[in-house]
Measured scan of single mutants.
Amino acid sequence: MSIQHFRVALIPFFAAFCLPVFAHPETLVKVKDAEDQLGARVGYIELDLNSGKILESFRPEERFPMMSTFKVLLCGAVLSRVDAGQEQLGRRIHYSQNDLVEYSPVTEKHLTDGMTVRELCSAAITMSDNTAANLLLTTIGGPKELTAFLHNMGDHVTRLDRWEPELNEAIPNDERDTTMPAAMATTLRKLLTGELLTLASRQQLIDWMEADKVAGPLLRSALPAGWFIADKSGAGERGSRGIIAALGPDGKPSRIVVIYTTGSQATMDERNRQIAEIGASLIKHW
């Protein structure tokens, strides 16, 4: 067993022997301040990774656009098919120029040779490549099948209805392509620590998230040296922004954090800054 596999296998073990965790309302004060600064709703939840206990939450059962955070769930569904012998990570998928959609920095470079399922998941999570996500959605049967996968996990809230990039439209009061912070946090925890996926697939999923290259201005910008984070960000229309993450000190994750916002007129930089400040408060009061 590799060191990384050992780390993920012992996530519940280490967490069980940690000192009790206590909620700190100071972080919620910052979440509410972010709402004021952005002029928009902000949803927040913080779960203990081992027990699933909610440590703090704000608007945990209000719907927010998922945006690209759905790509972690998508690759979880792909990995479940791999575990069941219905898919192979090494299978190569070929596609054409007509398949390319807006923001496809990886797939646009491989029109000639195609990409493997493993490479597509890596591109979808680490670079948020939209064509990679659409190609992977095709392998599982489309958005409705991802929703069905989530329902089978016990998540009857999260739903995907459309493809990239239309799913980022974020129309107010439109339930399409949305989740709730509580539902997303619980589902992410199941994917990373539950028995739904094999140990190898859980490790692969967290490795992809740990290698995320496009979430630097968010929670990662607030992390002290030595902290662990595996995350996936999302951005959408109407001032929408979000991030889902597993993080913790001492090089291992111990909490799940989900943050979503929508309806702001603020710039992307300002949305990023507010999420980073929430992260800084979380870490300060850990």
Rank of each mutant, 00 (worst) to 15 (best):
N98M: 04
I259V: 05
S104C: 08
G154Y: 02
G263K: 13
E56V: 09
T262A: 08
M184F: 02
N98G: 06
Q88R: 13
L160N: 02
L137Y: 12
K232C: 01
L49A: 13
R63W: 05
T27E: 06
D207V: 07
P224S: 12
D207Q: 02
Y260R: 00
G90Y: 13
I256P: 00
L120W: 01
Y103D: 02
L73K: 01
L223V: 10
I140C: 13
A266Q: 11
K190L: 12
K213A: 03
R59Q: 15
D129C: 01
G239I: 01
W286V: 05
P143V: 09
E26R: 09
D99A: 04
S201L: 14
A215P: 12
Q97S: 06
V258Q: 01
A183R: 13
A84S: 05
S240K: 15
L150V: 08
E237I: 06
K53Y: 12
K190N: 11
P224R: 09
E61V: 07
W163F: 03
E56Y: 13
M127Y: 05
P105W: 06
G76V: 10
E87F: 11
I259F: 04
S264H: 10
V257L: 13
M67H: 11
F228M: 13
A211Q: 14
V29S: 13
D174F: 14
I45Y: 11
P60N: 14
G90L: 11
I93D: 09
P224V: 04
Q88P: 12
W208Q: 06
G76Q: 01
R202V: 08
I125P: 00
A182F: 13
M67A: 12
P217N: 08
L196R: 14
E102Y: 11
L191G: 06
H156Q: 11
G239W: 02
A246M: 08
R220D: 12
L223G: 04
L188C: 02
T147F: 02
T187W: 15
Q203R: 02
A276L: 14
D129L: 00
G248P: 00
K190D: 11
I125L: 03
A124F: 00
L223A: 10
P253Q: 12
N272I: 09
L146V: 05
P143I: 13
N272S: 12
G141F: 06
T187H: 15
S233G: 11
I140A: 15
D33Y: 02
H24M: 08
M66R: 00
G76I: 12
V214F: 14
K252T: 11
R176K: 06
R63P: 08
A230L: 07
A215C: 05
V78C: 15
Y103A: 06
H24E: 07
F58I: 07
D177S: 04
T186G: 12
D161Q: 05
L191F: 02
E195K: 06
I206Y: 15
N130R: 00
G39T: 04
E169R: 04
W163A: 06
A34P: 06
F64R: 01
G251C: 11
L73C: 04
A84G: 09
D177V: 00
K53M: 15
A211M: 15
T139Y: 12
G76N: 01
R92L: 10
M268D: 13
R189D: 03
D48V: 03
I244A: 14
L89E: 05
E87D: 12
L247S: 06
G43C: 06
S51K: 07
M115N: 04
K252P: 10
E62A: 02
T179D: 00
G216I: 03
L120R: 00
A245H: 00
F70M: 13
E175F: 08
H285Y: 06
I244F: 08
M115L: 03
V82C: 13
T147E: 09
S233N: 03
P253E: 02
L205T: 13
D161K: 03
D113P: 04
D174W: 08
V106P: 03
D161N: 07
A211N: 03
I256C: 12
M67W: 01
A276N: 12
P65H: 11
T107I: 09
G52C: 14
A34Q: 09
T112F: 13
K30F: 11
P165D: 13
G248A: 07
L28M: 08
G90F: 13
N152I: 11
A211S: 09
Q204D: 06
R220W: 09
Y103E: 03
K284L: 09
W208N: 14
D177Q: 01
R238L: 11
R220Q: 08
P165S: 10
C75G: 08
E108S: 15
L49K: 06
E108P: 14
F228R: 15
W163G: 06
T112N: 14
L192I: 10
A34Y: 12
M180Q: 03
P224H: 12
L160F: 05
D155C: 06
T158W: 01
E102F: 02
E56Q: 05
A222P: 07
Q37G: 05
I244N: 14
T131F: 04
G154Q: 10
I256Q: 02
L199I: 15
L49D: 07
E237D: 09
L150D: 02
N130S: 14
A185D: 00
G226H: 11
N173Y: 14
D129T: 00
A246V: 09
L28Y: 12
C75W: 00
P60I: 15
Y44T: 04
T116G: 13
L167K: 01
A84V: 07
G263R: 09
D161E: 04
K32S: 13
M115D: 02
K190G: 09
K144T: 05
M127G: 14
A124G: 14
A245G: 07
L38E: 13
L197S: 09
R176Y: 13
Q203L: 04
G279Q: 04
A222C: 02
N168Q: 10
A183C: 06
Q204A: 03
A34I: 06
A211E: 15
N50E: 06
E119L: 07
R159N: 07
P143Y: 10
R162M: 09
E169Q: 02
E35I: 13
N152H: 10
I283H: 05
D212I: 11
M66A: 10
A266V: 07
R63C: 10
L223W: 13
G239K: 03
L167H: 04
G114H: 08
L150P: 01
I278N: 00
P105V: 06
G248I: 01
K30I: 10
E56G: 04
L100G: 10
C121D: 00
A170G: 02
S96F: 07
R271A: 15
G76Y: 10
E166C: 14
W163P: 06
I45V: 05
L146T: 04
G85A: 07
T178L: 04
H151P: 07
E270M: 01
K213F: 15
K109T: 06
A40K: 08
E195T: 14
L218N: 02
K284C: 08
Q274T: 06
D155P: 01
Q204T: 05
L223P: 06
D174P: 12
D48W: 09
E166S: 14
G242N: 14
V157W: 14
E61L: 04
R271Q: 09
R220K: 14
R273E: 15
G242A: 05
P172Q: 08
G141D: 07
L199A: 09
E62L: 02
Q97M: 05
E26D: 02
K71R: 00
L137G: 08
L219D: 15
T158P: 01
D83G: 06
L247G: 01
T179Y: 00
K144I: 13
F58L: 11
E270L: 03
G154K: 09
P105H: 03
V78S: 09
I283Q: 02
Q204R: 04
D269L: 08
L205D: 01
V157I: 13
Q97I: 04
E108H: 15
A40L: 08
S201R: 09
M115P: 02
E145Q: 11
E175N: 11
N168C: 07
V101A: 04
A34C: 14
P60Y: 05
M153C: 02
A230F: 11
E26G: 15
I259L: 05
A276R: 11
G76L: 07
E210R: 13
N272W: 03
E210D: 15
I259E: 01
